[in-house]
Computed example of a mutant assay.
Amino acid sequence: MRAMRYFVAIARSGSLRAASEVLNISQPALGMQLRQLEDRLGVTLFDRHSRGVTLTRAGAVFLEEAEQVMVAYAKAEASIAPFRRPVTEVLRIGVSSTVARLLIPEMIAEKSDSSGIEIKVRVGYDAELRSNILTDELDVALFDSHLPLNLPNTRILATEDLWLIGPPSRVDPELGPIKLQALQSIPIVMDSIRAPDRAFAEYLATTHDIRFDLVAEVEPISSRRQLMLEHEMCCISTYPTFLNELGDGRLVARPIDAEGASLRLYLLTRSGLNGQVLEPFEALIEKAIRRLVAANQAPWKVL
């Protein structure tokens, strides 16, 4: 599991040097771990060059699965907590898929095994997570949303821009932010209406009285990625959704210039939650967010 976590950190950072700083280990030791992983798998995961590393095709496939394994590992680790140590509290956490992809591996890295808290993780859409908090099915929810929430025990941890993402043949990042109205002439492929970035894009279109050229509604992300890479389509999305492709240059992005075109990263907690459980968890999340932002692995603007 350690080797997989190291691999994910290298892929996100784009170089062994940057990843070694994030992981707080020496670069030679990290390089040795990577070589051992590649030998064990029988494939080359990265192409090395003077500017750092880029994922090979095998590496990109492995990364997508590895990130899902990291999320699953967090659930598995939490499920056996009672067998490893006395458990004083159970913390039920709900996270949206994009937030899970970024934060769950960081939480694993930061969490102390001696905390005495069993963590159970559930992944879902923001509306579902909000409902689970109100019905006491969850203790904490972490999700991004464009909606202003007038709920008790709610904090905004960070904000995040919405982006036009596509192949270099369609999107020129040198032009800077793109006006929302200009998106009407661009073929767009998007997630289902339940997804927060899709709901946000539709909300912006309605409030600004425009209509997108929506050519396909596709799940999962891998299918949208294929359409974008092979058929030169674009997507309106958050940056982390296509973090790997943006990192290696296969896709590029322009921030969308429109009033209110930013998502909020919310921390929502159940009323009556034990402060002795909540406060260490909040500190854990804030530390993980700061690490990701400092390493340029998440485009959040921390509040």
Rank of each mutant, 00 (worst) to 15 (best):
E38F: 02
L63A: 05
L34S: 07
S26T: 15
R57L: 13
S26E: 14
Q27A: 15
T44A: 12
F46G: 00
S50K: 05
L34D: 01
Q68I: 01
D39C: 10
L45I: 02
V53K: 01
R40Q: 15
L41K: 03
D47K: 15
R35I: 13
N24R: 15
D47Y: 15
L55T: 04
E64P: 04
N24E: 14
Q33F: 07
R40H: 15
P28V: 08
E64T: 11
V43R: 03
Q33Y: 12
R40N: 14
P28Q: 08
L41Y: 07
L45T: 02
R57W: 10
D47S: 14
L34K: 07
V53D: 01
E38K: 05
R51T: 15
R57I: 12
N24G: 12
M70T: 00
P28F: 11
T54L: 05
G31A: 12
L63Y: 09
M32N: 08
G52V: 06
R51S: 15
E67N: 08
A66I: 10
S26L: 14
R35T: 13
Q68K: 10
T44M: 09
R35N: 08
V43S: 02
Q27M: 12
L41P: 04
D39M: 11
N24W: 08
E67D: 07
A66L: 06
R57P: 09
M32H: 05
L30I: 04
V69P: 02
Q68L: 07
V69N: 06
M70K: 01
G31Y: 07
V69C: 10
G31D: 08
S26P: 10
V53S: 05
N24Q: 14
A66E: 06
L63V: 04
V53E: 03
F46I: 06
T56Y: 02
E65P: 02
L30H: 02
R57H: 13
L34T: 05
F46L: 04
F62P: 00
A58D: 07
G52C: 12
F46H: 01
L45M: 10
L37I: 08
